[in-house]
């Protein structure tokens, strides 16, 4: 499946006020000042050398973190020196400054920041934790999203996305899976967000939630019908199942020795092409795909094991015709109709 044509959505910049929603529990020390400053970079910066006056290569467009090192340095200075040091930083276009450990920041620091329209926040977290919390938050704010027309279900804990032409039966398969105790993430409109470059997280939209359209029936609400255990809000994408009408001349995987992948926003996702024809129970196959994926994740690959046994058998076979057919049975000697 080719996902290269999809529209990718992402923010080029966010407002400083967005940081208030971060889990770092920031408290503004400068009121509403500079809340509409824009942050254009998701990285955080510790302005150690900039405070000391060395401003070459100073990443001023990043959120500045004043940790214990910076705080102790400022504390060691006289008031006049502190104003100069703070100005080194404030004369640049800095989006905002965050003080960690709730260190009691100096009034002159706040004054200089206010003069330059730079908002100052404080957090009770130490620098390492604040860094971690803010990085995660900013990574999400600046992350790339795509919307995919498909149905996204958690099958035995495996995030499985069904795609295929309109009307092929994606929703019906999901409904069948829900009936069997699996959990719907979203139907028809699924949003995927790239997290830390390697993970795609999928969710529905706030409007469509867990509503679903069933052809000939109309709109139904899965959460109301099947309850809380039949849904979930988010899930990591692990397998893409591409449903298509069975075609005589199309080649489908027979051994499963080679895993195929689809590229979605630069992330490789295991992908399976599944032909559909009347009488085929796709729901059961979907469950088997999930279990097989889990087995592979936990180190057991049935195709490889079988292939290995075959190779051993070929190697050990002595030259010449084998006449003892009894040896080919799984049971070498039948004792009766017992286990």
């Amino acid at each position: 499946m080719d996902f290269s044509q999809l529209e990718i959505m992402s923010h080029k910049s966010i407002l400083v006020e967005t940081l208030i929603n971060s889990p770092a529990k920031l408290i503004p020390l400068t009121g509403n000042l500079g809340m509409s400053n824009s942050i254009t970079n998701k990285n955080l910066h510790r302005p150690q050398l900039a405070l000391a006056g060395f401003v070459e290569l100073f990443n001023h467009n990043q959120v500045q973190i004043i940790g214990n090192t910076e705080y102790s340095y400022l504390k060691s200075l006289s008031k006049q020196q502190r104003i100069r040091s703070t100005s080194n930083l404030a004369k640049f276009d800095v989006p905002c400054v965050i003080i960690t450990n709730n260190n009691p920041i100096f009034p002159e620091f706040i004054e200089v920041a206010e003069e330059h329209n730079i908002p100052v926040f404080t957090t009770h977290y130490d620098t390492t934790k604040a860094f971690y919390l803010l990085s995660e938050f900013l990574d999400d704010q600046f992350s790339s999203h795509v919307v995919i027309h498909g149905s996204f279900v958690d099958v035995y804990g495996v995030g499985m996305l069904f795609v295929g032409r309109s009307g092929i039966g994606k929703s019906e398969i999901s409904l069948d899976l829900i009936e069997r105790g699996h959990r719907l993430v979203a139907d028809d409109v699924v949003m995927f967000t790239k997290k830390r470059e390697t993970v795609l997280m999928g969710t529905g939209t706030s409007l469509a939630q867990h509503f679903m359209e069933v052809r000939g029936l109309g709109i139904i609400d899965i959460r109301q019908m099947f309850g809380i255990r039949a849904i979930r809000f988010q899930k990591r994408l692990e397998v893409i199942v591409e449903l298509e009408d069975w075609q005589q001349n199309e080649e489908y995987t027979r051994t499963g020795l080679d895993e195929t992948f689809a590229d979605l926003m630069g992330v490789e996702i295991s992908s399976i092409k599944l032909p559909i024809f009347p009488g085929k129970n796709i729901t059961v196959i979907a469950e088997v795909i999930a279990i097989n994926y889990l087995l592979r994740t936990y180190g057991y690959n049935a195709a490889k094991v079988f292939s290995g046994k075959l190779q051993d058998a070929i190697k050990n076979r002595t030259a010449g015709p084998q006449v003892n057919y009894q040896d080919r049975r799984l049971i070498s000697y039948f004792q009766g109709d017992n286990e």
Partner: peptide
């Protein structure tokens, strides 16, 4: 606004 949905899906 870059939010693209399938025209054959009512939910979309």
């Amino acid at each position: 606004d870059k939010f693209s949905i399938n025209g054959k899906s009512i939910i979309g």
